[in-house]
Simulated assay, not measured.
Amino acid sequence: MSHRCGLTNEDLNRRWCKPSPVLHPSIYHTKGLIEYLVRVWKKPPLVYCDYHGHSRKKNVFFYGCAGAESWCSNDRIVPDEPVKYLMLPALMHRLSPAFALGSCSFRVERERESTARVTVWRHLGVTRSYTMEASFCGFDRGPFKGFHLNTHHLQSVGSDFCEALNGLNDSATNVDIQLTKDLNGNIIEINLIGAEKDSEIEVDSEGGSGTDSVLKTDSDEDFD
C-alpha cells in the first residue's frame, strides 16, 4: 500500500510525532499551525479530523481517542469526558445514512502513537481528534447496503459532517451521555441526557455492524 506515502516512500500518517520540515513539509507545517493555535493563541480547535479510505471495514465511521481505552497508563488515570468525543459520532449517526456508529473505535493503541489522530489528541490537547474512514469496499448496512461509495455519497457525508459540527457546543456542560451495552460489552444505545430534547440513538444491528462496539476495536487488523 503506497497511496498515502510521500516522495520519501514513508507513510505520512506515521510521522506526526516528529515530522521533518524537509522530508515531511505538509505534516510539519500543519502540526505547527495547530500548535500555534494551541500554545500562542490559546484557542485549540474544537475538532480535528483527517480523512482516510479504509481497505477492509465497510461504511463510513470514526476512529477517535478515549483515555480510558488507551494502552498508556498515564492516559487512563486522567478523568474522561465521553460526552466530548462521543457527541460528534452520535450526531453523525443520526444525520448520515452512510455512517455506522457501531464500526467506530476510540481505542488508543501503541502502534498508532505517531498518527495525526493520537498526536493531536495527546500532544496538543484536542479532545475531539478523529480520523473519518470511508470504505473502499462499500456498504453492508442501511439504505445503501450492497453498493459501493460514489461521489454523491461522499458529498452527502461531507454535508452531514458540517451539520453535525454545527450541532456541537463546547459550553454545553449540562449534557451527559448514557451508554447501554449488551452482554458482550458492545454499545447498542446512546442516550443524550440534558439536551434541549432528550434523544436516543441506537446502533444499527444490521449486516456486519452488530458485533462492533463503539469503544472496542474489531479483532481484524485496522488501518488509520
Rank of each mutant, 00 (worst) to 15 (best):
M1K: 09
M1I: 09
S2A: 13
R4A: 08
L7V: 09
T8D: 15
N9F: 09
D11R: 02
L12V: 08
L12I: 11
N13T: 07
R14Y: 02
R15I: 07
P25L: 07
Y28F: 14
L33K: 14
I34R: 01
L37G: 06
L37S: 08
L37Q: 08
R39F: 12
P44T: 03
P44A: 01
P45I: 04
L46H: 10
V47D: 07
C49Q: 05
D50Q: 06
H52I: 06
G53F: 09
S55E: 14
K57Q: 15
K58W: 02
G64Q: 06
C65T: 03
A68G: 13
A68L: 13
E69K: 14
N74T: 11
V78N: 08
E81D: 15
P82L: 04
P82I: 05
L88W: 02
P89K: 04
H93M: 06
R94W: 09
S96V: 02
P97T: 04
F99T: 00
F99N: 03
S103D: 11
S103C: 08
C104A: 00
F106E: 05
R107A: 09
R110K: 15
E113H: 12
S114D: 15
S114H: 14
V118S: 00
V118W: 02
T119S: 11
V120P: 01
G125Q: 04
S129V: 06
Y130K: 04
M132E: 03
E133G: 04
F139M: 07
D140Y: 05
R141W: 00
G142N: 05
P143T: 08
K145T: 14
K145M: 11
H148Y: 14
H152L: 14
S156G: 07
S156L: 12
G158W: 01
G158D: 01
D160L: 02
N166M: 09
N166G: 15
G167A: 07
L168D: 04
T173E: 14
V175E: 06
D176F: 10
I177C: 04
I177N: 00
Q178K: 15
T180G: 12
L183H: 13
N184V: 09
G185R: 08
I187V: 15
I188F: 03
E189T: 09
E189H: 12
N191F: 04
N191E: 11
D198L: 08
S199L: 13
S199H: 10
E200C: 15
I201V: 04
I201D: 04
E202C: 09
E206G: 14
G207F: 02
G207T: 04
S209N: 10
G210C: 11
V214Q: 01
L215H: 00
D220L: 12
E221M: 10
D222S: 12
D222E: 15
F223G: 07
F223D: 10
